[in-house]
Write a protein that binds this DNA or RNA. Structure first.
Lengths: 363, 363
DNA sequence: CAAATGTGTGTTACCGCTACCAGCGGGAGT
DNA sequence: ACTCCCGCTGGTAGCGGTAACACACATTTG
């Protein structure tokens, strides 16, 4: 009496779980989807059965039956390649476990108008929500457009999110403060700073963290040499050259991201300065560049993949809530960063042993 | 007489197409898929109806009904971040249009044994096939393991694929030859070469292309200075320093990838050589690094995203064929590359105007 | 104390598509 | 002429879930 079923070999279904728990499939479904109106004891036995059978719902069936939440958009614009790769990995992981497809689109333009137009591409495909990694998370044009369309969005690493929007970030201020603290503890007192792009809120947070750490040590932040950078390697070359060319050359330089830190190291080498012997250089982000320069960069690592995962979770949860008509729960999630100490930082050279720099070779 | 249907508003289904074409849904399904046993005239009218209604099948329903092909594995190991990001974008695009989920796993180890173990992770999830971008596409350990498991795999950029395996690549030989041709046309006669990792077949293809281009010009390839590199920035520093330190310094250097080309530029700058004035430097791959160094690199662009797409298409097609018991069709696909001329290359300096290099500063 | 309102659960009817098999017309085999 | 088979097509029955509704039973309300 073989079952003429087309069912794939041995995969456990919701029915199996229902039978094991002594309830109906519907109740199991409710338990899985955080449904209301399930008695606590019933829920427990269902959860137990799920664990016992190692059941995981079939995403295809789920989205077919529910008829929604199958596509999440991801709009990116030239972040560093390392960042994007990490981000995609995290996003993909979250998307898979939620049974959702990722629809990714590139947004090359810097123009606000064109950026806004891009969002319309999502309108034609059946995307239900959008994830915005930096730097797009700062784009007012895109956020406004998405708002008009009524399309839910989650931003990542946006400095000052609007109160009722979804956002995931790390504490840039605390991280920068911690890194500065580390340099101070090594003995550095003349620390130079390369600021990030002024339009990114994170830039200001990082600079504030730097300043406050100095203040805590009794150093006047305004006396610390700071140069404006724009997160690009190129801007790092210029800022780095200015800082290292000063008569009172800093013994350490804190760049607001790895690209600018790498550029600063390159400048130092051209000036025949040893890193970290003559000058310590630290960055921020821990992108792939951090380990492909020599010496490898001391930097702050953002949990990029985890942030992407968190972003998707937040968004999917919000979508569910919208359908259910329930109020929103979390609007922001702050993940923890980590310091990564590598070879580009060390104690300052004892006074008197400081080397003289020569002027850098013209590129 | 409203339809109490849960159907989402206005999405066209296979039934709509069937009605429009005057056939049954089943026939439409056949046309969409493999499509044996459909009269040519019938097929035409169905195709017409599909186009008319702008129909695209619901992937969730499809994989639910078919009960398979919902997860494709992607195993990667530290390629350059730029490569990975591009690759993921392409893979994701193909996965979405095929209605398949991507399951990505990192393989950090260089050890053959551990590499083999990784594949077992896919066994537990219901992955039906695996995509292997470089450098894993060259790993015999992984390929053997996958073979034992009977898991179909498609390799990307593998030099010498086994005859009946699936592979996607570009013509490294032709690309290297073309790039060398370009340097020759600029007027260069003393061209140095930095080889890639000897265990990658692509390295040898690129070197062969270089040699053959020289031969065609009547230059003895063995007289051209060549240094062994390993695709890393570090190895490029060493090889670059050797080449530029020669008494008969080359007027152009062709590095087998962008990382080594970037390293060579860095060395040139430390020797106070101008690029491209004193020496042209060209790379291969067009990774993000190519545009983040100064001057920006002339290089060969691989259509990475397209290669990923092609890989998935090949794999999914093969999966279908296996189920249908049909013989395999394509086993290899060669995509076309493109030369990207930027600022790191130019004509050689007229004889007599050549600058003298100073020895590079110790790092 | 009857009616109105909640709670927790099961039943039914699908979602959009494809595997499986039945049916049908017609050329080949005998 | 009568099977037999083959190319082509349609009907039917699900795939594994969930929305909507139905329905007992408990609790509040006028």
């Amino acid at each position: 009496m073989a079952k003429p079923s087309r069912r794939r070999r041995g995969v456990t279904t919701i029915e199996d779980v229902a039978r094991a728990a002594g309830v109906s499939a519907m109740t199991v479904s409710r338990v899985i989807n955080h449904g209301k109106n399930v008695r606590e004891s019933t829920r427990a036995s269902v959860v137990e059965a799920i664990k016992q059978l190692n059941y995981s719902p079939n995403t295809a069936a789920r989205s077919l039956a529910a008829g929604h939440a199958t596509h999440i958009g991801l709009l990116y614009a030239n972040p560093s390649a390392g960042y994007l790769a990490q981000f995609l990995i995290g996003a993909l992981h979250a998307a898979r476990s939620a049974g959702v497809h990722l629809v990714i689109e590139a947004c090359e333009s810097e123009e606000a108008e064109e950026q806004a137009g891009i969002t319309r591409r999502f309108a034609t495909s059946d995307v239900e929500g959008v994830v915005l990694p930096p730097p797009l998370s700062e784009s007012q044009a895109i956020l406004a457009e998405l708002d008009v369309m009524g399309m839910p969005a989650v931003t990542v690493a946006m400095g000052t999110p609007r109160p009722d929007s979804l956002n995931v970030r790390i504490d840039d201020y605390a991280a920068a403060k911690e890194m500065t603290r580390y340099l101070l503890d090594l003995g550095h007192r003349r620390i130079g700073f390369i600021k990030g792009h002024p339009r990114h809120i994170a830039s200001h947070d990082r600079y504030r963290g730097f300043c406050d750490a100095l203040s805590d040590e009794g150093i006047d932040p305004t006396s610390a040499p700071a140069e404006q950078g724009y997160f690009s390697y190129r801007s790092g070359l210029i800022a780095g050259e200015r800082l290292l060319g000063r008569p009172d050359r800093p013994t350490a330089i804190f760049a607001s991201n790895d690209d600018m830190a790498a550029a600063t190291i390159s400048i130092a080498h051209r000036m025949e300065l040893d890193v970290p012997q003559d000058v310590s250089v630290v960055g921020f982000d821990d992108t792939a560049l951090a380990t492909s320069v020599w010496p490898e960069l001391t930097t702050v690592k953002q949990p990029i993949a985890e942030m992407a995962e968190a972003a998707l979770e937040l968004l999917i949860d919000d979508l569910r809530r919208r359908r259910a008509g329930t109020a929103r729960k979390f609007t922001e999630r702050v993940l923890s960063h980590a310091m990564v100490i590598r070879e580009s930082s060390g104690p300052p050279a004892p006074p008197g042993e400081a080397r003289k720099a020569r002027s850098p070779a013209r590129g």
